[in-house]
Structures are given as structure tokens and as C-alpha cells.
Design a protein around this nucleic acid. Structure first.
Lengths: 354, 354
DNA sequence: TTGTAGGCGTTATCAA
DNA sequence: TTGATAACGCCTACAA
């Protein structure tokens, strides 16, 4: 291993010798954990510099279990929504003296047969867990170890008492679909679900169904599909619907990413959005107002959610209690893709002006 | 610390006792590092399960320096381009038995006074370093320690011999600006630079200047601004230019994120894009074809770059040599925002059809 | 095939 | 204010 051929590592002992003090003293000045005479401090600091000493993280962790890091585990899917979430958490963490480490897992992360997950109690002081990115066994393990953990966008499993920070989905979705029905006159509204087991998607679907019921529109299973909060998945779903000749005048894409892909796929198939088919999303990602046509969606306070989760986690780490459950409300944002007319005009191709 | 109140951790020793074997044997079956009789293996494995034993990462690292992780350090800016990069690296890492840990730093990460950076030789087997997210001192330190390191989107500093994976920027930018000048008839082309010290931005500017020179357009320092590869920064720059009455008929935004923000800012100020002002970007992010108008840009093979960097790093970790320098070429993508007419029509507002 | 024991680098306890 | 030393949990010679 190339890593082992490296020249001998400079240890705290080397520093101690060079400075003519004990390792204990070096540790004290490094951690400011006790009073040390200014003279000694200077001695140690120059020794550190001269030797190029860098503390061995693993050794410290083994010895006292402090890392200065918090971690977040999330599914490895590239959704701009996740970027916003991470950004807000990172900011909060740094502002409070912690570094954020990120692990994006393709499978559901799990401890099993003694194998730890890559971000855990050994290299972080606490963990944020997004949706169902780790399995229940691991959740229970962390809880048994009383390791500071906060759940994001999911509730804890039965019998597990872990704080969670959530988005209110049902009301937002219901309002959105009501708008589609009442204000825009759509009746055959297709729904694209998120990833399997996703709680946000589940509740958005409930809101969709409630709006239908409230308007005496019978639920039609043929209008149920999957966008998986993913562009190519949404593309496939739209293409399949088009191929099979499904009749629909609107699509609730599940989230903005799927909505964006749905719009483009429909347009490439010769459909006009929103004249032929309306499309609405969920989240209000940054690009939602820039796309073509601007997207009608539900605004989710993603940054606030991230900050709140980080805040709860740091409280837990400090040994303070945290909120069992925090719920954030949403707000509908009406633009053009739903077919409802607005004052602001979107871009019009040059040739139209000629 | 709440983390210390947790019930006693199950160690390898507990497992050994339970299974009636030595810790050495437990370690052997856990790591498959030597032959153990099937009978003993079974004994150990059930003990692991019954006790809920999970290996202590830090202890293993301290003992043998293997982590199974690679790390990437990058600046904490939310650019969809980075998401693509991370996705490709993560896929490659996982396909090859490594986990990717991510650290997004707001300042330039640095070891100093013995303080390690959060992702380092103690918790990863190798490091990918994006652009100038860590300082030179740290780069030299890692090299001195012979720690596997690959630079992404930057060359090593003078005197440092570290592999790097790069994007070709100058030719791409020159071609793009040539297109703006020759095919679209623009002459006063403003340029928005990326973040300070960013090598990609530097070379894009060189390409811009070369295209100008090749067409006998004098370089005008008034047309030089900053977009910082960031939406709000680009917005500010456009607003400032508009305020001061700068005359320009095109903007090379530096990257797609800045371009998207530039387009929207211009439109809100009552300018038509591309009729009044053309806008072009760089990268060809996913959303570039969806925005309004669809963006003319330069395609960068971000996924391939990420995979290549990960590949080089794993070679280094295995003790194999890596390419000193890998350069990826680009390709211009002409859509609507440059003003050049294409067959594919963008979205047209419903009212235009009435 | 298995066990014993030393060492990895740090921090914390206890004395001085 | 400082020093000696016992953990922390694991791995790997070396022995058996």
C-alpha cells in the first residue's frame, strides 16, 4: 500500500521530545484543555510547526470520542433539491463549529455482520439521516447506542423514539390539485409517484386523492405512474403514457425535477404545455421559474428544514433535548405550466416578432 | 456528552469470549484474512449477531490504516455541475468497492498548527481535491506523506508532482465566442469571470480574448465582470452593468449557472434574450436545454472527468502509477440563447396562438 | 488452525 | 503547572 511507504508519521511524542515536555503537555496546548505556562505553549507550538505535526484523527477518536464532525447520509440521487438541503445544513454546521461530512449511498446503508456504515459514531458526533437511506436495523442500533441522530423527511419506525424534521406534503398537494381542477379546468390529472417507500411521495398522493374526491372526480388507477423524483424516470413514464394513448390533460409530476423532464418530453412529442397538457411539480427548486414554461409548483422551505435538522442534532450532541417532530408548511406558487394566465410573459421566440 | 452515556460498546473481546475463541480469531473471520475452520467461523458469526457487534472504525484505522473510503474536498458552492461530478465519482467508487465521503468547505481547507482537515489520511485511503478547495501547504503535506491524491480541475503548484485531471477550456471558449461573432454578428461581448484563482475561468477568458483578437475586436476592460459561477453573483453583475448603462450585445457568462441567472435578470429588466442581448454559458448542465431560451453553451464531459479522477486515485491507492495529467476536450452546443436560429422551436406562450 | 501480546497515537487520571 | 501511564479497540507478528 503506497500509504504505508510514506515516511514515518510525526507523532505527539516527537513533538514532546522536541519541545522538551511530556505528551500530556503537548495534548494540553493542542486542545487548550488545561492551563499551560505561556513559555511552554510557545515551545510546543514551534515544535509543532517545525516538525509539521498533524494530529491523528483516528487516535483521538479512539481515545476520547470527539470528532467535531456531523454526518449526513442520503440516497445517491442527483436532485437539485438535495443540493439546497445540503447547503443549508453545511452552513449551519460550520457556523456552529462543526464540519459536515456527506455520504451518498446507492443501496440502503446498513450495518450487518459487524460491518459499520462509512459515517457513524466512530467518525462523527451525530448523524442526520435523510428519508430511507439507512435501514431500520441500523436506526435501532444507533438508538441503542444513544447516538445523536435526527431523521430528515421521514418519521421513525414503530417503537423508535428519534427526533424527525418533516415537510407537510398533503395539504400542499391538495391545494395544488384543487388549483388545477378549479382554476384551470383540468379533470384527467395523471400522478407520478416518487421513489418507493418515500414518505413525501405518499402524502403528496394522499393530497392528490383528496382533491379529486373533493371535486367528485373518480380516482383512475390508469392515471397513476412513477417519476421517482428523477428526470429520466419521468421521461420514461411520459413516453409510456403517450405510447399507450392515455388521455390526460394535466400531470402532477411529484417533484420539480420530474416536472421539468415531463415538460420537455411532452414538448418533444409535439404536445404544447400547458395548452395540451398542464404540468405541475413540487419543491420550487431554483430552476423552476427559469424553465419553459415557468413551473407551477409548491414551495417547500428546504433551507429552513435543513437548518432546523442541524439545530436539533447539535442540541442532541450537547446533551440537550430536541423536538420529537417538526413539521414545515408549504405554499403554492402559480406560474405558467398549469395553464393559468399570469401577467408576466415568458420568453417568446424571435421569429414570432418578425 | 450524550454519546458517552450510551451503554458499553460491544468489542471484539466480547465477541471472542462469547464465541469461546481469541480476539485474533475473531479478527480473522471478520476480515477473512486467514484460514479459520468453518466451525469457528460459524461460532464467531453467531456471536457477532447475538451481541450486535459493530467494528470500531477508528480503532481499525489506528491499527492498520485501511478505511475503504475515498474522500473528495470541494468548495461549498451549489452548482449543478458539481452534482454531476459527484455522482460520477460516487458511482465509480462504489463499483470498485470504495465509499465516497464528501467534505464541502466554505473557506480553503488547511492543516495548520497540527489541526487536521476533516477528510484526510486518517479516515480515507485517498483524496480527490477539487480546484483550490485546499491550500498549497496542505497539498505539500499530503505529498510529503505520500498520501494518494488526485487534483481535479486544477494543476499542481510549482514543484509538486501530483496527478491532475483537467478540462480543456481555452479552445472551447474560443470556438464559442467565434460563433457569437461570426455566426451571430455580436461585437460587444461581456465576460463574467468565475471565482478568483479558478483555473477554468482563467482559460475561458484566454479563449475569449483570442477570439476577439482573431476578429480584430479590441479588448475592452469595461466588458469584464464577475459571475463567480454563481446565480446571485451573476445577477448582481448584470444589474450593475445595466445600471451604469454599459453597452453590450452579448454575455459570455462563464458557466451555465451564471448564464441562467443572467438571462432571467436581463429579461426582468425588460431585455429580450437573444434579440437585445445574447447569452452563452459553459458546461452544458442538464437544465441548459430546458431554460428559456434554451442555452447555447460548451459541453463539458463532467461525468467522464469524475470517473477518470476516481480511476487515477484508485490506481494510486493500489500502488500503481497514475497519469500525470489528463485533459478532456469540449464541444460547442448551439441552441437559442446566442441568437442563431435553429429548427427546434422553443415554447411560445399560449396567448400568441389566440 | 488458533492464541498471546505488543503497538497504533491520543487523551485523561492521578501524582507530583 | 507538569509528567507518567493506563486506557480506547483493533490487527498482526510470533508462538504454539
Amino acid at each position: 500500500m503506497s500509504k504505508d511507504d510514506g515516511r514515518q508519521r510525526v507523532t505527539i511524542e516527537d513533538v514532546a521530545k522536541r519541545a522538551g515536555v511530556s505528551t500530556a503537555t503537548v495534548s494540553r496546548v493542542l486542545n487548550k484543555t488545561a492551563n499551560v505556562s505561556p513559555k511552554t505553549v510557545a515551545l510546543v507550538e514551534t515544535a509543532v510547526d517545525e516538525l509539521g505535526y498533524v494530529l491523528h484523527t483516528a487516535a483521538r477518536i479512539l481515545s476520547n470520542n470527539k470528532t467535531g464532525n456531523i454526518g449526513i447520509i442520503l440516497p445517491a440521487t442527483s436532485n437539485p433539491f438535495l443540493t439546497s438541503l445540503l447547503e443549508s445544513i453545511n452552513q449551519y454546521a460550520i457556523a456552529n463549529g462543526y464540519n459536515l461530512l456527506i455520504y451518498a449511498t446507492t443501496a440502503q446503508a446498513s450495518i450487518r455482520g459487524g460491518v459499520p456504515i462509512p459515517l457513524n459514531e466512530d467518525n462523527t458526533d451525530g448523524l442526520l439521516i435523510f428519508s430511507n437511506s439507512v435501514d431500520e436495523q441500523t436506526l435501532f442500533y444507533l438508538h441503542r447506542r444513544q447516538f445523536p441522530t435526527v431523521l430528515l423527511y421521514r418519521t421513525p419506525p414503530q417503537g423508535l423514539d428519534v427526533p424527525c424534521v418533516l415537510l407537510e406534503n398533503k395539504n400542499g398537494a391538495r391545494t395544488l390539485i384543487q388549483h388545477l381542477i378549479k382554476n384551470c379546468g383540468h379533470r384527467r390529472i395523471a400522478f407520478m409517484a416518487g421513489p418507493p417507500e418515500n414518505q413525501d411521495s405518499y402524502w403528496r398522493e394522499q393530497g392528490y386523492r383528496e382533491a379529486l374526491a373533493a371535486n367528485n372526480i373518480p380516482f383512475d388507477p390508469n392515471l397513476m405512474g412513477t417519476g421517482a423524483f428523477h428526470d429520466w424516470k419521468a421521461k420514461e413514464q411520459i413516453e409510456q403514457w403517450l405510447d399507450q394513448g392515455l388521455i390526460f390533460d394535466a400531470v402532477f409530476a411529484g417533484d420539480d425535477t420530474a416536472a421539468m423532464a415531463a415538460i420537455v418530453t411532452l414538448q418533444r412529442a409535439g404536445k404544447r404545455v400547458p395548452e395540451d397538457v398542464a404540468v405541475v411539480g413540487f419543491n420550487n427548486d431554483t430552476m423552476s421559474e427559469y424553465i419553459n414554461p415557468p413551473l407551477t409548483t409548491v414551495h417547500a422551505p428546504t433551507g429552513a428544514i435543513g437548518r432546523m435538522a442541524a439545530k436539533q442534532l447539535l442540541q442532541l450532541i450537547r446533551g440537550e433535548p430536541a423536538e420529537k417532530k417538526t413539521l414545515f408548511d408549504t405554499e403554492i406558487v402559480v406560474r405558467h405550466s398549469c395553464g393559468y394566465k399570469l401577467a408576466v410573459k415568458p420568453y417568446v421566440d424571435a421569429e414570432e416578432h418578425l
